[in-house]
């Protein structure tokens, strides 16, 4: 007879997640009394690989945390900055909230769209940029503001755009 009082789910994620990803997710799991809490951390970790999270990664995260895939998907699709579709190499987040709006974010958005030839939610054909709106970046004293990847850019003007984007190959 087999007595199973401790039924840890058998996790087979080695072929879905990289060793580094697994290591990093485990690191965050230790921060909380319940591994579920690391779901957002984990999604951000796996998102680093390709800039977005694919189905297999969602399943991998679910397995690691011992929660349902649907729970992970529910989280992944709730938050603004987890991407469940491919994005460009760089994601441009343009703050369209009130302070930036007052300082001309709509013109800036139009300028960016013109320059990149895409609209919100789209990726340039060369796969370089995806453009998304974002709510207040907490940088209102330096409006209008955009965020490219991890960089917050202050007082952005339409004229600066070509030069600013050069840093993001």
């Amino acid at each position: 007879m087999m007595i199973l009082t401790d039924k840890k789910p058998r996790v087979q994620i080695e072929n879905i997640l990289t060793a580094q990803e697994i290591h990093d997710i485990e690191h965050y799991m230790h921060h909380y009394p319940d591994p579920r809490a690391a779901s957002l951390d984990a999604l951000k970790i796996v998102q680093k690989r390709n800039g977005w999270v694919d189905d297999a990664q969602v399943a991998g995260v679910a397995q690691m945390l011992g929660i349902a895939v649907t729970d992970v998907e529910g989280v992944a699709t709730f938050y603004n900055r987890i991407y469940r579709q491919p994005v460009g190499r760089h994601v441009i987040l343009l703050c369209d909230s009130i302070a930036c709006y007052l300082m001309g974010s709509e013109d800036l958005a139009a300028g960016l769209m013109d320059h990149l030839g895409i609209r919100y939610g789209q990726t340039t054909p060369d796969g370089r940029f995806t453009l998304l709106p974002i709510c207040c970046l907490g940088n209102c004293d330096k409006a209008p503001t955009i965020m490219i990847d991890e960089d917050t850019l202050d007082l952005v003007s339409i004229q600066q755009i070509p030069e600013l984007l050069e840093d993001y190959a």
Partner: peptide, 11 residues
């Protein structure tokens, strides 16, 4: 979480 538009003090 400071996401109230117009707010940047906690940052």
């Amino acid at each position: 979480d400071e996401m109230e538009p117009g707010t940047f003090k906690d940052r």
